[in-house]
Design a binder for these strands. Structure first.
Lengths: 162, 162
DNA sequence: CAAGAAAGTTAGACGCAACTAAAATCTATC
DNA sequence: GATAGATTTTAGTTGCGTCTAACTTTCTTG
């Protein structure tokens, strides 16, 4: 049985409050959106075009979900889309997708220095990539460069991890 | 006008496919859940108890949302909850919450080495913390230790970031 | 060039996690 | 100890991103 709580405990105003949710702002960049853009640009680069089946397979998602998201992204001006035809990224969409892929690569390169298995690297990059600021990304990039040029550092690191 | 796409393009089976979504498994650990647990344990540690108002204020969320999540977490055995009374973490819930807070701290310590503003650090940690494996976390921890003991390295790093 | 197969779309539903408005309960104070 | 105010809960919606089933369009191939 829990005791009732005395109301004398004042709710301290909380200094570290996260920023107010920007609700329903058009064309906000969510995780799923970024996954699609990344996937689409990669498909275009690797096989010249991005088809719904391939997007669905790559992201392990049902095809109707791809159609739905495609329409959203089109409405937001990130890609061009004609029913039953094909998908093209707009300039804005391509710029965004490129940035996303670059982020992905920066993170992957960093994690590779730790000698983790590829599956872990892949999952963690997938998880983190959508939530990192440019500033931190720059730091990670610099860090990777440092690790690139200092094998001794990498060795020390891996030893400490064991 | 987009041209129709020749179907000769075979969908390459895709080697890097992410793992199948574990759908609807009971008590899965989602981002929101982890945020609540983290917040609740911190409130308990800092003021002896976690009240819905304070949770709502801290997470910048409406109070009814707190009730809803509280009930979910209770149903999953992560906390004990009696209507209109109070919230207590179960052993499992507390263990989980501790791990979450520890993760948070590891990430914060690492990012602090890069000389970023606290707001950026906070936001990025918030974003990344829910998506990092233990392995990568260990690597980050070791990395932080390395940076702790090598100010020269930190200096080189910050120079490279500018 | 006409099936049949493959790809894409629509329609309808669901779960999560949030919201507002209104009702219920608790606490403090007089 | 009644009551005003604070806190919590219920009820009912909403938006995102997913799903399945069924339908339409496009492609391929005999």
């Amino acid at each position: 049985m829990l005791r009732a709580v005395p109301r004398t405990t004042k709710p301290t105003p909380n200094t570290t409050k996260p920023a107010k949710r920007t609700k329903a702002s058009p064309a906000q960049s969510t995780v799923a959106r970024e996954d699609y853009l990344e996937c689409i640009l990669q498909l275009i680069q690797s096989k010249g075009l991005a088809r719904a089946v391939d997007i669905a397979t790559t992201l392990d998602i049902a095809q109707p979900s791809v159609t739905a998201m495609t329409q959203r992204l089109a409405a937001e001006g990130l890609l061009t889309y004609e029913k039953y035809r094909g998908i093209t990224l707009t300039n804005e969409g391509e710029k965004l997708a490129s940035a996303i892929i670059q982020r992905h690569q920066i993170l992957t390169r960093l994690l590779r220095h730790f000698g983790l298995d590829e599956a872990t690297i892949y999952r963690d990059v997938e998880g983190m990539e959508h939530h990192i600021s440019r500033k931190t990304l720059n730091a990670f990039d610099a860090l990777t460069a440092e690790l690139d040029r200092s094998p001794a550092l990498v060795t020390r690191l891996r030893a400490a991890m064991a």
